[in-house]
Design a protein around this nucleic acid. Structure first.
Lengths: 165, 165
DNA sequence: CCTACCGATCGGTAGG
DNA sequence: CCTACCGATCGGTAGG
């Protein structure tokens, strides 16, 4: 997406964008940081309603997919363009992502301690979960009719319980 | 990656590329179809050595990660640029991907019938598996020291057995 | 396989 | 917020 296309979507000419943003970098950073905040906010909103790690993790998974589906265009930028954020903003962004991931891993650690979860490598487990969840945006794009909440539920089940009988 | 950068990597000038390829599209298509063939070949090489669906699926997962790690640069193009293949090649490429996915789903169907696997939505389960496996290229890029076979094994365990105790 | 060059498009600026 | 325009870079061609 070029500056001219962005301008067309808001109904102005490309140079006029520079009255609102310093440049393309700033637009990119704004989208990425706003989306990151959404993920955090939505996580906080659901996770403390549950006390058991299993239910917390499931709620966090469903909330995460919810943010993606309610901010599809921003989420695409967040996933595919974040690496073009200029330093030092990029480092700050990566830290936010890391902190968010750690919130998931804390739930897993608690679950492992309680004996609710297997003794998995939580970093790798987190990686598997986010890879699958973040890829759902491609499903949503190619098939807008799917029931996204149902899909998030079923996906949480596969990730938590596996496919082995 | 532009034509000038491609040329520099093989030690010629950009216009000389056109003595070997019609254009950038043809280079992209060649990389994507060659990589697709690699995935198929590696799948066939391991899957018939096992008879039980669980072991077959695990072997297929490990083989898939193996292809990624042995063709990292090509795999990146395969995953991130395939959508820019020109029609009708693009349709043929998508069919190959679909056929490859179906090979995994056939194993799952067999496993479900035998009672080795849960009655999961095999399409969604496949999506979860490929999302996680294909994202490992980012892990490999950012940390070349990791033991990739060990990682593939642990990941197959998480995907098959889940994280719930 | 090269040099020289093309039209198109990019992010961005000058000036109003 | 606009018109007019900039240098850089893109994929690709002409001609040898």
């Amino acid at each position: 997406m070029g500056m001219r296309e962005i301008a067309r979507e808001v109904g102005i000419e490309a140079p006029s964008i520079y009255n609102h943003y310093k440049g393309k970098d700033e637009i990119l950073a704004e989208i990425c940081f706003d989306t990151a905040s959404q993920f955090f906010k939505s996580f906080e909103a659901v996770v403390d309603k549950e006390d058991k790690p299993l239910k917390q993790l499931k709620a966090a998974v469903v909330a995460h997919v919810g943010v993606i589906n309610e901010n599809m265009e921003a989420a695409e930028v967040f996933f595919n363009e974040w690496m073009f954020i200029e330093e030092p903003e990029k480092a700050r962004f990566k830290k936010m992502r890391y902190d968010y991931e750690m919130r998931f891993r804390e739930i897993m650690d608690k679950g492992i301690k309680r004996g609710d979860f297997k003794k998995v490598d939580t970093k790798l487990a987190c990686f598997v979960i986010f890879s699958a969840l973040n890829a759902t945006i491609e499903l949503s794009k190619s098939n807008s009719r799917i029931n996204k909440e149902e899909m998030a539920e079923e996906m949480a089940n596969i990730l938590l319980k596996g496919i082995k009988a």
